[in-house]
Amino acid sequence: MTFQDLILQLQRYWGQQGCAILQPLDTEVGAGTFHPATFLRALGPKPWRAAYVQPCRRPGDARYGDNPNRLGHYYQFQVLIKPSPADVQELYIGSLRAIGIDLEKHDLRFVEDNWESPTLGAWGLGWEVWLDGMEVTQYTYFQQVAGYELDPISVELTYGLERLAMYLQGVDSVYDLVWVQTPDGPLHYRDVYHRNEVEQSRYNFELADTEHLFLQFQACESECRKLAAHGLALPAYDQCMKASHTFNLLQARGAISVAERARYIGRVRDLALLSARTWMGEVPPATGGAADEGGAR
């Protein structure tokens, strides 16, 4: 199964389960959970079913294209269903079957894993799903998001696509993954992304201008607050995600000490919570002038 077939099969399968197949968010995020289709839609009482691929950027995990298992940019396949269906475990196992994993031949185990994102003020309980000892999915029943106790509960399934594809294709390096068979032979993951890993690693670790990034972080922060004051949850949340990514870059550059780290996470969380409250209509939009002043502070 090629890398793109894996994605297509998962999309088809979850589409058949009534999920809206969305496209990736066009902003840098560290995980599919950041996508508003998860973070914001998990809030409130309205049912929601969505599935999408999300490219994720983790600057600190970049390895100059040298490490066969680690990437600074990779794909997650994300499913969010609210309320969590009673048979979601069976649905999940059905998705494995859909991508050709025959459980007559593979060992499946659900190993406790409790997920927490201090940045998003969110936590949930669930498992790492182990296929023959390998973690292939994060399976989480969200309990709290942006500080809100959820009701009803959403279930989030996050597949690590590269890892799953490596296992299905039996290759030891992510760069040897076959993306698609072309008339001229296989196109590999290497052909698509290796150069990106090399160049982004240099940027992440060597060239990113930390002074500029610090300013950018502040700019995103005040822009987020200003937009929230206008009652614009989604643009405000965009700025929150940008602040989060900027923080990740600063960390990769080693510009933030261990002690400072907690403070920055707290600042991003404040923005996430503010965006979520705005989304829920709990931050009353102020009138023009006052809001701008509020934003500039």
Binding site: P68, E104, K105, H106, L131, D132, G133, M134, Y167, D172
Partner: peptide
């Protein structure tokens, strides 16, 4: 089946 299961476990440990 044993070979498949062993293969997966070996791959994780090996990596």
């Amino acid at each position: 089946t044993a070979a498949t299961i062993a293969g997966g476990n070996a791959k994780v440990i090996g990596a």
